[in-house]
Design a binder for these strands. Structure first.
Lengths: 189, 189
DNA sequence: GCCCCTTATATCAAAATGATATGCGGATTA
DNA sequence: TAATCCGCATATCATTTTGATATAAGGGGC
């Protein structure tokens, strides 16, 4: 498994639906895959240049005279081929990085309140994320069946729902454990 | 929030318990935080050099004459200070990257079996991870209460348990949805 | 007319990824 | 006994990703 630029496939996958600019790609990606894969301009623009050079996408300047100049990209046959090949390879990158768990892991160095505050903030953040996901889910359920793309989108939304719920359940469990723990026996009795 | 080398704090956190070599750090990290934060030699050795240069750790060559030469690192007072400061800052990096969801998202381009095979492999992988986590949990429950470090370790283990369970539940839900879906209406009737 | 926001492209240093190179010592195997 | 393989241990490198910043045009509000 060589070190592989995954951004390539995200861009090709999005362009497979419609022609987009780099800016559009960022917005689409944030909206549609943002809950499980983040992407920045620092990856998008260089990768678009690379894809164009390799003949997997073509670039044209948008004609609309209003607003700033837009470079619109379109996928080519070769690009579609590369995308399909990638989809047939089973291997998959998967990584998670939770700084909160790192800080909790080393949490015995600081007062317990630091840890509970951290978990509280985590809860707030993911309660918000869960709310968003539930909105997506409700919207999707209304249009499901129109085409099979929606089913795949729906499946990724269900993933988000499960994960955010797991986060919140864990947070409550962790807070309860921290509350039960006597503060190193330093309290006056 | 500047671009921050998190590896620094992992190393300092581990060295805070005992002196370790780069190789030890890798093994400890894999074992203890590997389920939510991965780290490679490519980060460890350069970061150790940087930490030494900044006076946050000191290096000495291990005396044991058996086996290859070992560089043992110890945390300094300044290092402990940096670690504690980091633990007091609430902000936290958090990202997840699931290539499987990317491939499912664009899954309408390939036969449904590709997607189900992918999810099956995902299940196998995480069933294994869950089994490992349950072992950790059982071991920890036996030694809990001995010192408060175990509680924090336990809390991170509970996180893994929740997450892996969520993965498996989602996988079954997704497989069910894919099975229910007619294959683009191409079957003879 | 001025300020702020959104659109839009682009670049850069720092950090992380993932693979590979090198070598020692001990155990297994031919 | 020699050959081979594995675990320990340090290290580096190209590629990719991160996260911040630079630049600029156009539209809306005041």
């Amino acid at each position: 498994m060589a070190k592989e630029n995954t951004t390539i496939y995200i861009i090709l996958g999005l362009l497979n639906h419609e022609d987009l600019s780099g800016y559009d790609i960022k917005k689409r990606a944030d909206y549609m895959i943002g809950s499980f894969w983040e992407i920045g301009y620092g990856q998008i623009y260089p990768t678009l240049a690379k894809l164009e050079q390799e003949g997997l996408v073509t670039k044209r300047v948008s004609e609309e005279s209003k607003g700033p100049e837009r470079n619109l990209y379109a996928i080519t046959g070769a690009g579609r081929e590369v995308l399909t090949q990638w989809l047939k390879v089973p291997e998959q990158k998967e990584y998670t990085k939770y700084e909160i768990l790192l800080k909790l892991f080393f949490g015995s160095l600081v007062p317990v309140e630091e840890s509970t505050k951290r978990i509280d903030a985590f809860k707030v953040r993911h309660t918000e994320n869960l709310k968003m996901i539930e909105m997506f889910k409700a919207n999707l359920q209304r249009v499901m069946g129109e085409d099979q793309d929606h089913l795949f989108f729906y499946i990724t939304v269900l993933f988000g729902e499960r994960i955010y719920n797991a986060y919140l359940e864990w947070a409550d469990e962790a807070l309860k454990l921290l509350q039960e723990t006597p503060e190193k026996g330093q309290e006056p009795s």
